[in-house]
């Protein structure tokens, strides 16, 4: 499904290049879930951006469904993202001017694969059906994150990439959102790569990798 081979990435800084990832290898099978842990600045988010085709590595190769992302031009990478990937961010990134229902369908519509019944089911299961006409600012943080998860899953992606999806929520809301996320991912059969710094959030996932100073430091199980 997703394969990262010998990935290296550095960013220019006034003090010289800052190496964020060094020779990272990672494989994710269809339907598998993987937690990516590490301290702040360890390269977790950069790795997620590379996996989503939002950025390109300096060295190494990212393959999605066997296709090397670096060989694709930007419009093709964009098409791949909207059709095959779902993204969930810590800050939700909902469109404030669209209501709940339209936000949830946005990516599916952009990909031209809206499934009205699936969207309705997602709204029901995420507990948002009664607030379909509301706008993001009228929702709580937990509700906004549930909506972001719904938007990512509405396209029935092959891979869901989640960057600290519960990082902005209180413990109760975080548990609630995580349960829903894992349940929906399990039902849809997509793979999950989740960046988190919380062992509690990482625990239910199939595997866990720990990044330290740009390298894989530990893997479990």
């Amino acid at each position: 499904m997703l394969e990262l081979r010998h990935i290296s990435k550095s960013y220019p800084t006034p003090q010289g290049p800052l190496c964020v990832l060094q020779g990272v290898d990672l494989r994710l099978a269809v339907g598998e879930s993987l937690a990516l842990m590490g301290e702040s600045g360890s390269g977790k988010s950069t790795l997620l951006h590379l996996a989503a085709g939002l950025d390109t590595p300096d060295d190494g190769e990212v393959r999605l469904d066997g296709r090397p992302l670096s060989a694709l031009d930007e419009p093709t990478r964009a098409r791949l993202r909207r059709e095959r990937l779902g993204l969930v961010f810590q800050q939700y990134h909902l469109v404030p001017s669209l209501n709940v229902a339209d936000n949830l369908r946005l990516q599916a519509r952009l990909a031209g694969r809206e499934d009205a019944a699936w969207s309705r089911e997602l709204l029901e299961r995420l507990g948002l059906a009664s607030m379909a006409g509301r706008y993001p600012e009228q929702l709580s943080g937990g509700q906004q994150q549930r909506l972001a998860i719904g938007r990512a899953l509405a396209t029935r992606p092959a891979l869901l990439l989640a960057d600290e999806p519960t990082g902005n929520l209180d413990e109760t809301s975080a548990d609630e959102v995580l349960t829903l996320l894992l349940e929906l991912v399990g039902d849809s059969g997509c793979a999950l790569l989740m960046v988190t710094h919380s062992p509690r959030v990482a625990a239910p996932l199939d595997r866990c990798l720990r990044l330290s100073h740009g390298r894989i430091a530990e893997a479990s199980p």
Binding site: A78, E83, L87, F89, H93, Q107, A111
Partner: peptide, 12 residues
């Protein structure tokens, strides 16, 4: 615009 780009709409 960045989130929309991340969702798969290219810059063009």
């Amino acid at each position: 615009l960045a989130p929309l780009w991340a969702l798969g709409v290219s810059r063009g």
